[in-house]
Design a protein around this nucleic acid. Structure first.
Lengths: 205, 205
DNA sequence: TTGTAAATTGGACTTTGGTCCAATACGGAA
DNA sequence: TTCCGTATTGGACCAAAGTCCAATTTACAA
């Protein structure tokens, strides 16, 4: 899987230079002339990150970062800039930027930042996909099975759950057996570990 | 519980001014003339944070931050500086600083940073104390009970655990009952939730 | 040497959990 | 209307977990 590095800078010569450097380091550069152009993109299959010029006509790099946060796109960002200042860099870092490099910077500085950014993205993608896998299983549950699940992971006995739901213990056992199958676990311990990774609303009453 | 704000700056007039501002905002200022002076401190009972001048004779603010990381002291840091630059601020943020304010800054900027820092520290302290509470319970376990615990929270049956440990199922039940008491839980689900908060080495074999 | 804590096991039960087969009831989709 | 998925329950069992009382062995400290 190629590690894609989006290069967003309005200066063609900068794009070209960075693309060459990044390519030589074994990444897959994707030069783009504007932040708007990047926002058109919808496909984010593999590991990737952004190298982003702060100052650009139209949407600035900072604007793009904020826009991505708003839209829930979470690709690690590395800023580069010729005319930055401290508050700007601090805000970018607060918003989760991996690095903020004033020009001129060493090639090695940029490449090490890219390395960190890509690794971060890989970790995030792994977490996310596991979370989604679990969510998919939860969606297979019927409403009643979901009710039972929420009580089971808080350690209640079948008879207690039965009382809460106003049904017999027998019924709870059936639901419980089926939800364990659908969640693909063989023990309550495994079930708890799974559900801790997603947010499960705690049961009422 | 007073919210203590350590002010570390070599300039007495700055210390005085900041102390007044911070006091007026309802915090408890603790002015110190040097980073070395702060490192003497050992008592960190209540919520607190640091307002730290970057440039100082002897240990600089940056040095102090690194020293604290090395020693495992985790108080949120806010840097203030008259002569900073971007790489310095970025590195400070990477190392977990809450904010980095070049002089001159607005009072409100500093106060809002302090507010965030204190809240962060309160959350950290809460997490830490819960973790320690759990660790204390784990220390009550005999080696054998701890062995059993590690298998229980991975969802093994008593008979499986017995086989792993080379003892009878009966024995496992006894250990299991006692560890549940010592951990103060009534169900495997609760036990798993507790142990997820600390790191438990996964069992071998 | 004498405790003391830890580890181990047995017997005898009770309570819980889980499964198989079967059946009833309800509501929406074809 | 008919069929399917969901929810519910019963009976009959078996497996697993938990408890109470009692006993033996071992290692380490006073």
């Amino acid at each position: 899987m190629p590690k894609r590095v989006f290069i967003i800078d309005d200066d063609p010569s900068v794009r070209k230079g960075l693309a060459r450097l990044i390519k030589s380091a074994g990444f897959h550069p994707e030069p783009l002339a504007s932040a708007e152009g990047f926002l058109q993109k919808t496909r984010f299959n593999g590991p990737a990150c952004l190298v982003l010029d702060v100052r650009m006509p139209g949407l600035s790099g900072i604007d793009l970062q904020k826009e991505m946060i708003k839209k829930g796109i979470s690709l690690p960002v590395i800023f580069i800039t010729g005319h930055g200042n401290i508050p700007m860099s601090v805000n970018a870092m607060k918003d989760g930027a991996v690095d903020f490099l004033p020009k001129p910077f060493d090639d090695t500085q940029l490449l090490s930042a890219i390395e960190r950014a890509i690794n971060k993205n890989i970790r995030m993608r792994k977490n996310l996909s596991e979370k989604e896998k679990i969510q998919r299983r939860i969606k297979l549950l019927t409403p009643r099975e979901y009710d039972v699940l929420r009580w089971v992971i808080t350690g209640r006995l079948n008879k207690q759950i039965a009382a809460k739901l106003g049904v017999t213990e027998k019924t709870v056992k059936v639901h419980r057996g089926r939800l364990m199958q659908k969640m693909q676990v063989k023990s309550v311990a495994e079930l708890v570990v799974l559900t801790q990774k997603c947010e499960i609303g705690s049961p009422k009453r």
